[in-house]
Design a protein around this nucleic acid. Structure first.
Lengths: 212, 212
DNA sequence: ATCTGCCTCAGCCTTTAGATGGAGATATAG
DNA sequence: CTATATCTCCATCTAAAGGCTGAGGCAGAT
């Protein structure tokens, strides 16, 4: 029985490489590729893959968000987060969003194969480092209160350097409303300025920093 | 005649993938892998590869520095910078260090092959985007006017989320002075708020975003 | 000796940011 | 039906941010 895979990464080289690497395994079949979260969701709907290898840091829509939507809509599809960053909220976010695995990109080949096979059977597979993070989190739920959808949207705009007035125009709401959201975001994130909030957003990959 | 390659990237998955991808090409042979700049230099000395695929963002020693050393010591080895970030100083830095090519990781497979073959023959190959950067740089050294040492210091603190008063204390200077620096930084960078400046600083790696 | 760039600081001004408290509307869960 | 959460908006106020102009000290270059 072959394991049908969907690859999601914004770097073509990484996708290409993974595809070639996985092709050597007879029980794997790459049935689709996506370069961002939106594409990933579309393809997941159409193809209903067994396992999704999901990069977390992507433009358009982050991997965490995409993971959540895929898991809600297609629960029989398992998602493995595959990322280069090891960051508390990413780990927790990905797990909470329903990822069954969290692997770092410096994982070696054999371990990657093990993880995919485990995921296809619904078994959990984490990088040792990621597992350590998770442990730390459970012991000390310093969970930054979860932002609402709207707040996340506002934070994203803050992290693009927009002023409150610009955010208001962008979302077609009042500046006062934006201020309310901003204040709520600050207290939830435990920061005291929009700059800190923007840096936090950048650190968890909510925005794309590369200015092309 | 086969092209002998050295792969340098801190992510094992990326190396693994590249290796598998390149294996399909009969005129390529991957003769070594390194996960950081120091290893890369050692291996380049021993193996004298035709082409080095060099990631720029690595621990221990960055790719730019490693490129410079390799090119000085082993001029017959060509280096292609392969990176996920497109940043002015990286492009310029890599080129100045002697890289014959600068490719983004979202380059597709065929273009990557073309670039490696071109490099092996000593021909220049740049990503269109990278080329555009280079052109912009040469014709209009509007390179975001270079910041002074002090300004860079202030920018770094801005990018750590500090307020002007905190920066003043941190540097043992007056808040007014800080404001002067901040204003100068803004006009040099072409931004209008400290948040935008902080994001710019983060995007060029002036600060470490991962709060581990 | 003069010029130039950098760092330092000042005053004055307008705009923005952020805190706080209150409030109406809708939707959803229990 | 009634909490609860979310989104929306308003007013008020203080603090911070940022623009603008001017200016003194200091080092290195010409």
């Amino acid at each position: 029985m072959t394991i049908r895979l969907l690859l999601v990464d914004d770097h073509a080289v990484v996708r290409q490489g993974l595809k070639m690497f996985l092709k050597a395994e007879s029980d794997f079949e790459v049935i689709g590729e996506a370069s961002n979260g939106v594409q990933a969701i579309e393809l997941a709907r159409q193809l209903k893959p067994d396992v999704v290898l999901m990069d977390l840091l992507m433009p358009a829509m982050g991997g965490v968000e995409a993971t959540g939507i895929i898991r809600r809509e297609i629960p029989e599809t398992e998602v493995i987060a595959l990322t280069s960053v090891l960051e508390d909220s990413s780990v927790i976010g990905a797990i909470k969003a329903g990822a069954i695995g969290y692997l770092l990109k410096d994982t070696d080949g054999p371990e990657l194969l093990r993880a995919i096979r485990a995921a296809a059977e619904g078994q959990v597979q984490l990088s040792p480092k990621a597992a350590a993070r998770l442990m730390r989190e459970v012991r000390a739920p310093e969970s930054p209160e979860k932002l609402t959808e709207r707040e996340t949207e506002v934070l994203r705009l803050i992290a693009q350097g927009l002023a409150n007035k610009e955010i208001a125009n962008s979302l077609s709401i009042g500046e006062k409303t934006v201020k309310t959201h901003v204040s709520n975001i600050f207290s939830k994130l435990g920061v005291v300025s929009r700059t800190q909030a923007a840096l936090y957003a950048a650190s968890i990959g909510l925005v794309n920093l590369t200015h092309d």
